[in-house]
């Protein structure tokens, strides 16, 4: 399988001299064709800049970007068969929905009747038939999002870029759109590259994802790999509600003197165990209760399934686990 997008030690620096900021710092990245790829990270971690490097709105300070094998260093955005769903959708306010969707076909020289027919087809695909005559200002946030999606997809791009596409939607709509986007991607077979700061969104939608931190990729892998075997403390912290254990605690639990992570769902309460402490808080989650225990300076959470006995706050307890679930991290 060819790589849809390939970064070879790509850097993007803003400004010069001592005040310069490296938004993207020597990133190597390969996005497989047909995959649903997520770029996950806190704001300012370089994920959006990477997306803009693919679309062409930023140019690398050094390194090479290839799209389907072709070096794009001299190719402006309008000649890249890559389309973007912008964070604020960026619909053209002076055009109606149909003209918005047909815009890409219009500037490529397609006749009016044909491009309008295609636009209607695409609007039907995103479940907005009969909306062609409205202006973007008359649509709800969710509808605008669908128009932006249709406007990008009508061009049959080889890669679709989505910049926090669900960020402006409320929770219920967001969950529905997650399923829809995933289904759409599978149906069309187009490579989707998706930027988000929401780890749940990234884990549930992507085939593979890159976690960004300070302009660098902290880890690339499938959701399961990233969730279960975070490579660094940052990834463990950012990706899930995992317990991050300092070297001393890891050692006390029989591991090497390194940072480690331990999932709360992989632990159980016991009378005695390798790790004991005082219960500080209980949080009822429905199917389970999250018990937080403090040992030394470290807080560790355990999940107790419903029906099991619960300790009282202030009492001492211990945590037991299967040693294979203690994940020792490669880097700090």
């Amino acid at each position: 399988m060819t790589a849809a997008v390939e970064f070879q030690s790509v850097s993007r620096q803003f400004g010069t001299g001592p005040g310069a900021v490296r938004a993207v710092d020597a990133v190597d990245l390969t996005i497989a064709e047909g995959s649903f790829f997520a770029m996950l990270g806190p704001s300012g971690s370089g994920k959006t800049t990477c997306l803009r490097l693919i679309s062409g709105f930023e140019q690398p300070s050094s390194g090479t970007i290839r799209i389907f094998g072709q070096d794009v260093s001299t190719i402006p955005p309008n000649r890249r068969n890559v389309n973007t769903v912008f964070q604020d959708y960026a619909l053209f306010p002076h055009m109606n929905v149909r003209d918005n969707v047909a815009y890409g076909l219009r500037v490529k020289g397609m006749g009016r009747a044909q491009r309008h027919a295609k636009a209607e087809e695409m609007l039907a695909l995103v479940q907005l038939p009969d909306y062609g005559d409205r202006k973007p200002g008359q649509l709800s946030g969710g509808q605008r999002q669908r128009v932006a999606l249709a406007r990008a997809l009508v061009n049959e791009p080889r890669v679709l870029l989505l910049d926090e596409p669900l960020g402006a939607l409320d929770l219920k709509l967001r969950e529905a759109m997650q399923d829809e986007l995933k289904a759409l991607q599978q149906r069309l077979g187009i490579t989707f590259v998706f930027v988000t700061h929401d780890q749940h969104e990234a884990l549930s939608m992507a085939d593979s994802l890159a976690v960004f931190n300070q302009g660098r990729i902290a880890q690339i892998g499938t959701p399961a790999e990233i969730y279960d075997r975070p490579r660094t403390r940052f990834v463990a912290d950012f990706v899930g509600s995992s317990n991050v254990l300092p070297p001393a605690v890891t050692q006390a639990m029989g591991g090497p003197a390194r940072w480690a992570s331990l999932r709360p769902e992989h632990t159980r309460l016991a009378a005695t165990g390798p790790l004991s402490g005082t219960v500080t808080a209980l949080r009822y989650l429905g199917a389970a209760t999250r018990v937080v225990m403090k040992t030394g300076d470290t807080e560790i959470a355990a999940l107790v399934p419903a029906g099991h006995p619960l300790p009282e706050p202030g009492h001492s307890t211990a945590i037991a686990f299967d040693p294979k679930d203690l994940h020792v991290m490669e880097d700090e």
Partner: peptide, 13 residues
């Protein structure tokens, strides 16, 4: 919004 001009280029203009 800047996005509108970028969107136009993005769509091939």
């Amino acid at each position: 919004s800047v996005g509108v001009l970028e969107a136009s280029a993005d769509l091939g203009a």
